[in-house]
Computed example of a mutant assay.
Amino acid sequence: MIQRITDKVFVVGMEGSANVVIISIPKGVIVVDTSLFPEKAQKIREFIESVLRKEILFVVNTHYHPDHTFGNVVFEDVQIISSNLTSEKMRMMDEEYLKELPSNGKVVTASKTFEEEYREGPVTLKKVGGHTPDSSVVIFEQERVLVAGDLVFNDLHPEIVQDSKITEWLEVLENLKKLKIDWVIPGHGNHSDKVCLDLMIKYLAKIQRLLDGTITYAEILSDENFSKRKFPELFSWGLENLIAH
């Protein structure tokens, strides 16, 4: 499903899947994340080239997770940009890592990397960490849009992985609240305003309290910010990952 957020920003996503974002600037189009499936990435490319009739300037990967990067193979002839750390983590994907995942032919890493920040016209890429050490965001100041990657899950339980750092994640979200933005596009779930940043902060803060022993499991389950989110199995999985490290 393709949603138009502003005149220059589109989001392609389905129930629970990673969002792919299309940003139109005067020179052409920027694609943020490429999904898990090359077939989906190919349809998105066809939409850009046939319907929008725009040149793809470059592709951005917000972090290394396969559901945001495996569609890179469709854009191999286009410049792909990520942080150095994202590229490094993708190069570490070995057979053991890939065996449970859909085959996409090969892992395609960035052709251009940045350390902390990269700017192209009205669009800024920033590595911020939190969800994963390499997590980056894309800020489109002109349209007041933040592409948050997996730092934000809206109406869904977030994927908390073994290299997630809750304290850092909370700090990043507080900093993102200071941006002059009207729209937040999460890594998964529907776009929203800054309210989804507050809900993610409240969610993660309660997870931290659960780990610290200052709140009970029952208290969390009675909170609508938990009980109304989809994919509750991710809640248990996330706790296991936090406990594991």
Rank of each mutant, 00 (worst) to 15 (best):
I2E: 09
G13L: 04
I25W: 03
I25D: 12
P26E: 04
K27A: 14
G28S: 06
I30R: 06
D33L: 04
L36P: 00
A41T: 09
I44R: 13
R45N: 08
E49P: 02
V51C: 10
E55G: 01
E55H: 00
T62D: 06
D67I: 13
H68Y: 09
V73L: 03
N84Q: 10
T86E: 05
R91P: 03
E96V: 11
K106I: 03
S111P: 07
E115F: 01
E116L: 08
E116G: 04
E120K: 12
P122Y: 00
G130M: 04
H131C: 15
S136R: 05
I139E: 15
F140H: 12
V147R: 02
A148G: 09
N154D: 06
D155E: 09
L156S: 10
H157T: 07
I160Q: 03
I160F: 00
E168R: 15
E168G: 07
L173Y: 00
K178Q: 13
L179H: 05
W183D: 05
G187S: 09
H188E: 15
G189V: 07
N190R: 14
S192T: 09
K194P: 10
C196H: 02
K206R: 14
A218W: 03
I220G: 07
F226Y: 11
S236K: 14
W237S: 14
N241P: 00
L242C: 12
